[in-house]
Amino acid sequence: MLNKQRKLGHCKIKTLFLLGQAQTQTQHSQKKKDSNKRRQRSKKMAGAAGIRRKMPQRPPPPPSVLPPRPSNTLPRRPFYVDREKTCPLLLRVFTKVGSHHSREDFAVRGQEPKNEFQIYTWKDATLRELTDLVKEVTPAARRRDARLSFAFVFPEKQGHLVVRLVGKTFSYGSGEMDDGKALAQLGFQIGDYLDVAIF
């Protein structure tokens, strides 16, 4: 009787042990399945992200078209300076009635001719504009038949001063000669003097 009970007890223990092993294996296989599912999901997500990165970008918007210039604005000169945004330059102007000054008159710095006035202007200033400024300062230039001759005074490569004629105007413009020529078009450089002969 005791032997039978012992055998039954052993059988029960063995059965419980086998059940425990089976449950452990089941849990282990379930964990494997869950991990495999997670990997597949992560791969799908990575693939979807890669596809998104490879999607073509939208083309940039077309450049905005500038509005046409209003009809009441003046046409630009051949050489144009935005005078509202560009600082003016200081121009030293020397006048003489009957002829131009010689280069010897400018040889000694600080002893230039006395009949000088200074103006602030820009490189696109025309000879007509400069003529009107000279007339405000020099009475001889206001004569009805007065003619003005313009020359730049500047040092050449060797250092010697040069007086170079650049244009002529009438005191009261006739629309001819060199009225519309700008300083920059005539080769003016900042630092040059302007010599004006009045005839």
Rank of each mutant, 00 (worst) to 15 (best):
M1R: 09
R6F: 02
R6L: 12
R6T: 05
K7I: 12
K7H: 09
K12E: 07
K14R: 15
L16G: 04
L19G: 12
Q21D: 01
Q25N: 14
T26K: 14
H28Q: 15
S29T: 14
S29V: 13
Q30T: 13
K32I: 14
K32C: 12
K33Y: 06
S35R: 15
R38C: 06
K43M: 11
K44R: 08
A49I: 07
G50S: 14
G50P: 05
I51Y: 07
I51H: 08
R53Y: 03
M55S: 06
Q57F: 10
P60L: 04
V65N: 01
L66H: 12
R69D: 13
R69P: 11
R69M: 09
N72I: 07
L74R: 15
R77S: 14
P78T: 12
F79A: 13
F79S: 13
R83W: 00
R83Y: 10
E84M: 11
K85E: 10
K85D: 01
K85F: 01
P88L: 04
P88D: 01
P88C: 09
L90E: 13
V93S: 11
F94V: 01
T95F: 09
K96R: 14
V97N: 01
G98D: 03
R103F: 11
R103C: 04
E104I: 05
V108M: 03
N115T: 15
Q118Y: 05
T121G: 02
K123D: 12
K123H: 13
D124G: 09
A125K: 01
L127D: 03
R128A: 06
T131D: 03
T131Y: 10
T131L: 04
D132L: 14
L133A: 13
V134G: 09
V134W: 06
K135C: 05
T138H: 03
A141N: 07
R144C: 07
A146D: 09
A151D: 06
F152N: 05
V153Q: 03
V153S: 10
V153W: 06
E156F: 02
E156P: 04
K157L: 09
Q158R: 04
V162W: 07
V163K: 08
V163A: 08
V163M: 10
V166N: 05
G167P: 01
K168L: 06
F170L: 15
S171H: 03
G173T: 11
G173I: 03
S174C: 08
G175S: 03
D179P: 06
A182D: 08
L183K: 03
Q185N: 06
F188E: 00
Q189W: 09
Q189H: 06
Q189G: 00
G191A: 05
Y193H: 12
L194G: 12
L194H: 05
L194I: 09
D195V: 11
D195W: 11
V196F: 04
I198D: 13
F199M: 07
